[in-house]
Amino acid sequence: MDNCKCCENKGYDELGAFIDALPSKKGELITVLHRAQSIFGYLPREVQEFIAERLDLPLAKVYGVVKFYSFFSMTPKGKHPISVCMGTACYVRGAEEVLTELVRQLGIPVGGVTEDGKFSLDTLRCVGACGLAPVVIVGEKVYGRVEPKKVAGILADYSDEGEVRS
């Protein structure tokens, strides 16, 4: 989501409506955090405060859950978030080298975002596509059998501002 005020307000409206539609607010924190992250792309403090207030939960508890699960992030993602699978199968088939190449080409560390906000880089554990190992995910698109020399080509897919060439 872009960071303009009207989009942000729309995001809160959407999240508020989602919370209001829940049959009960009890035990729904993780569901709500998932939805919030899909709306805003990350979970900044203001969003956590909004959730704590709407779910009538202590802010410390919301923050505790966000900090416990590595899936939840408090830093904004790039427009095209890149995740490299570091699960066992991907790892033994060279995920580490792929990751090193991505770090080199993007010029950012794992967890970082490129200066233009276009890419962010993370690792994750097993996406269940071990047959395609090693796997790299960009946004919703899954790239299988990736090798370091294929990295440049993958990044080039996004050279036209988000238009994925097929």
Binding site: Q48, A52, P58, A60, V62, F68
Partner: peptide
């Protein structure tokens, strides 16, 4: 029922702390 404290993080960096 004050809710000032929560466990955060994992492993060696885990502590009990207030929000943020």
């Amino acid at each position: 029922t004050v809710g000032a404290l929560s466990g955060i993080n994992r492993g060696f960096t885990s502590v009990v702390a207030p929000a943020f």
